[in-house]
């Protein structure tokens, strides 16, 4: 009865410097049937934490054809609660089984005192928080026995307590914990609009050798009588202003594997593939410039 559950040969182990797309359950059939011409796939790690069933079976099939990145959303990395050992154990098992080229989590926290908000919450950028994050990233890398990437999040408030900028905090964390950076260009744009900083300053502050992956996604604008707040919703095409910032990021960093994220109100797979092709064209220019 388990002919299908015999592990298939794993596909390529490294991520090409091309565009990839986020794989969601809504697109399982379309991806398996049409094998879209994208360079790699990324999934949310927690969606594969089950002991068995369709998600893992599908992941096994797609893994035979695509390089894979595992992107975590629920570790609550920056929390002052102890790290969730069972969460990490499931992640480690997933890594062992699927041999992803990249494993990432967020520069955020999501729980305290055992209470989870299940959201990506910003940290105060203080020396104390930096020390804490360095320790936590090191713990995770020790348990997983590999380097992870840390992604900058979108935020909707800034703390009076912060003594560092987010970009300095992220660069110092990567430097001192030895993790890589997953630079979310959409998140930089969203936070820059919400907090009034220059996104180019952010881009220039991140050393290019640290950046191993870029995320692109769409945001939503919440309009009020007295202004607007941009929300990172991943339910839209990438905004033209974010494409422009992405071009500048590639000029500054050189070509970097880039993911199109789309997590709710999903369109047809072809729409994501189209966005990925747009990113590929920009990466091609980057390659040409580098040559």
């Amino acid at each position: 009865m388990h002919a299908k559950s015999v592990p298939s040969r794993l596909g390529p182990r490294s991520i090409p410097v091309r565009a990839g797309i986020g794989l969601r359950a809504e697109h399982y059939d379309a991806v398996l049937e049409t094998r879209p011409p994208v360079g790699w796939l990324e999934v949310h790690s927690e969606n594969y934490f089950g002991a068995g069933g369709k998600p893992l079976a599908v992941l096994e099939q797609v893994r035979a054809h695509y390089p894979l990145s595992l992107h975590g959303v629920g570790l609550s990395l920056g929390s002052t609660d102890p790290l969730d050992a069972s969460h990490l154990a499931k992640l480690k098992q997933l890594i062992r089984r699927f041999e992803p080229a990249l494993v990432s989590e967020h520069l955020s926290w999501g729980s305290v005192g055992g209470r989870f908000l299940n959201d990506l919450l910003p940290l105060p950028y203080t020396e104390e928080a930096l020390q804490h994050l360095i320790m936590r990233v090191s713990q995770v890398q020790d348990v997983l026995d590999r380097q992870i990437l840390i992604e900058n999040i979108s935020s909707y408030l800034e703390y009076a307590d912060s003594s560092l900028t987010e970009w300095d905090f992220l660069a110092q964390l990567a430097q001192r914990a030895g993790c890589g950076v997953l630079l979310d260009v959409n998140n930089i744009y969203v936070s820059a609009c919400n907090h009034g900083f220059d996104p180019h300053v952010y881009l220039r502050a991140i050393p290019h050798h640290m950046v191993q992956e870029i995320h692109l996604a769409g945001f939503t604008v919440n309009r009020f009588e007295d202004g607007e707040i941009l929300i990172d919703t991943h339910n839209q095409p990438v905004h033209p202003a974010v494409w422009a910032l992405y071009c500048q990021a590639i000029q500054h960093l050189g070509p970097i594997p880039t993911l199109i994220e789309w997590d709710s109100d999903l369109p047809e797979l072809a729409v994501l593939v189209g966005e990925a092709q747009q990113a590929d064209a920009i990466l091609e220019d980057g390659h040409a410039r580098a040559a």
């Binding site: 908000l117 907090h195 919440n222 007295d226 707040i229």
Partner: peptide, 28 residues
């Protein structure tokens, strides 16, 4: 007092997180 008051009130900014958390759990 921990939230930098710039343009929008801290209440409205916290409300974004309240919504996000509720949407995330309700969707689940």
């Amino acid at each position: 007092r921990h939230i930098r008051a710039r343009h929008f009130s801290s209440e409205r900014r916290l409300q974004v997180y309240r919504n996000n958390s509720r949407i995330s759990l309700t969707s689940a």
